[in-house]
């Protein structure tokens, strides 16, 4: 299986890349890790006329923590996150990374590329929704910062404009009394999620929940942030009953399709179970962090 023909550009600076996008962003596809784009091109689901390879642009591979924010540049690979101590600053991010694709694909595929691709079966968008991430979109005219919820428009569609490129994703680091987790049901390594649940919690000095994030993968036409379930948690002391309530809300909020991976009923059930389990894990980390 071979892609159809295209033009190839590999700029060596961000300015150059943004200039290309400014000029003819409509016909250009950005090539990051290529682990979603190239398979689609081989199957001829995608036939871009020009590829803009951003891998030669210096400075896009930063994975940094400063002032309670974890930032990942466009060329941070899934495996960079797996191996990074810095990434441990956000527990949801750190626990999701090993679940993405397989070890070799993780050497090339990028976190930002995954968000830009916005496959509803992709894991990172759920992680970012649960953690309230922001994306930096750059163009030749400047930068804008977009909230993840505004970035993800619809499946395979984002608010990134043809003249723009995502240069960074930023997510709040967990405090010592915060925790997070990613639960994924997959049939084998390299499989997309049957169900994925990202969770994140912050506790106050009394141990009550001050903020909560819950987002779901593969059970809705896009990655789904379950605001109602999050709200049900905030302001309360964590308990099994409370988490069960959140699980119930999440399982009702999603709208999975029945397919070869399981019935809608089964997937809803797994959303319930994994939301509870994810919250319990997150709580364990948050409480462990307190002591």
């Amino acid at each position: 299986m071979y892609p159809s023909k295209f033009n190839y550009l590999a700029p060596e600076s961000l300015e150059e890349a943004l200039a290309v996008l400014a000029e003819r962003g409509d016909e250009v596809k950005i090539l990051a890790g290529g682990q979603s784009l190239i398979p689609m091109m081989k199957l001829r689901f995608a036939e871009p006329s020009t590829l803009l390879d951003i891998n030669r642009i210096p400075g896009l591979d930063g994975l940094n923590r400063s002032n309670g924010t974890l930032s990942l540049g466009s060329l941070v690979r899934h495996n960079d996150v797996v191996k990074s101590d810095t990434a441990q600053a956000n527990h949801t991010v750190a626990s999701a990374a090993p679940w993405i694709a397989d070890p070799i694909v993780r050497n090339l595929g990028t976190v930002v590329g995954s968000l830009a691709h916005h496959d509803p079966e992709g894991d990172w968008a759920s992680v970012m929704l649960a953690c309230g991430a922001e994306l930096v979109l750059s163009s030749s005219t400047g930068e804008r910062v977009v909230d993840i919820e505004d970035f993800l428009v619809d499946m395979f569609t984002t608010s990134c404009q043809p003249n723009e490129m995502v240069t960074e994703v930023r997510v709040t680091a967990h405090t010592a009394s915060g925790g997070g987790n990613y639960q994924k049901l997959e049939r084998k390594v390299g499989d997309y999620a049957t169900v994925g649940v990202a969770t994140s919690l912050e506790l106050d000095d009394n141990g009550d929940i001050t903020s909560a994030g819950i987002a779901l993968t593969s059970v809705y036409p896009r990655n789904l942030k379950v605001v109602e379930a999050e709200q049900a948690l905030v302001g309360h002391a964590p308990s099994d009953d409370l988490f069960a309530e959140a699980g119930r809300i999440a399982s009702e909020a999603c709208d999975p399709a029945s397919d070869i991976r399981g019935s809608a009923t089964y997937k809803r059930h797994i959303v319930d179970v994994f939301t509870r389990r994810g919250l319990a894990k997150s709580l364990g980390i948050a409480q462990g962090g307190q002591s």
């Binding site: 190839y8 590999a10 090539l31 290529g34 682990q35 190239i38 398979p39 081989k42 590829l51 390879d53 891998n55 397989d102 070890p103 070799i104 694909v105 050497n107 090339l108």
Partner: peptide, 22 residues
């Protein structure tokens, strides 16, 4: 399947999902 894997600057990569120009 990974049978196309080679080491690129020491890191394993699946060469069926890379272009030669890369």
């Amino acid at each position: 399947c990974g049978v196309c894997t080679v080491l690129v600057d020491g890191t394993p990569m699946k060469t069926c999902t890379m272009f030669a120009v890369q």
